[in-house]
Simulated scan of single mutants.
Amino acid sequence: MEAHLQLALANLPTISFGTGSLVRLPGPTIHQPNVYHFNSTTYSAIHSELATQNTPLYTQNGLLNMLGRNLTIKSYPERFQDWVPGKPRLEHAGDQGAKGTESGVVDVVITCEERCFDAVLDDLHNKGGKLNRPVHVFNVDIKDNHEEALVGGKAILDLALSLNEAAGRARDEAGDGGRAWDQGNREGFDEKVPDILAEWQERWPNMPALWSLAWF
Rank of each mutant, 00 (worst) to 15 (best):
G20N: 11
G20E: 13
V23Y: 07
V23G: 03
L25G: 09
G27F: 05
T29W: 02
I30K: 08
Q32K: 13
V35R: 08
H37V: 12
T41R: 09
S44G: 15
S44D: 14
H47K: 03
S48Q: 15
S48D: 15
L50Q: 04
L50P: 03
A51F: 10
T52G: 09
N54M: 04
N54G: 03
P56W: 01
P56C: 07
Y58R: 04
Q60D: 14
L63D: 04
L67E: 03
G68M: 06
R69E: 10
L71C: 08
I73R: 03
E78G: 01
E78Q: 13
D82R: 02
D82K: 05
P85K: 03
P85G: 11
P85L: 04
L90C: 05
E91I: 13
E91Y: 08
A93D: 10
Q96S: 09
Q96Y: 12
G97Q: 07
A98K: 02
A98I: 04
K99T: 11
T101V: 13
E102G: 07
G104P: 02
G104D: 11
V105R: 07
V105F: 06
V108R: 02
I110K: 02
I110F: 01
I110S: 03
T111K: 01
E113M: 11
E113D: 14
F117N: 05
D118L: 13
D118A: 15
V120A: 09
D122N: 15
D123S: 15
L124Y: 08
G128H: 05
G129T: 06
L131V: 10
N132C: 12
R133T: 11
P134K: 00
V135E: 01
D141F: 00
D141I: 00
K143I: 09
D144R: 01
N145M: 05
N145S: 04
H146W: 14
E147D: 07
L150G: 01
G152R: 00
G153F: 00
A155I: 01
I156S: 01
L157S: 06
D158S: 13
L159A: 04
S162D: 10
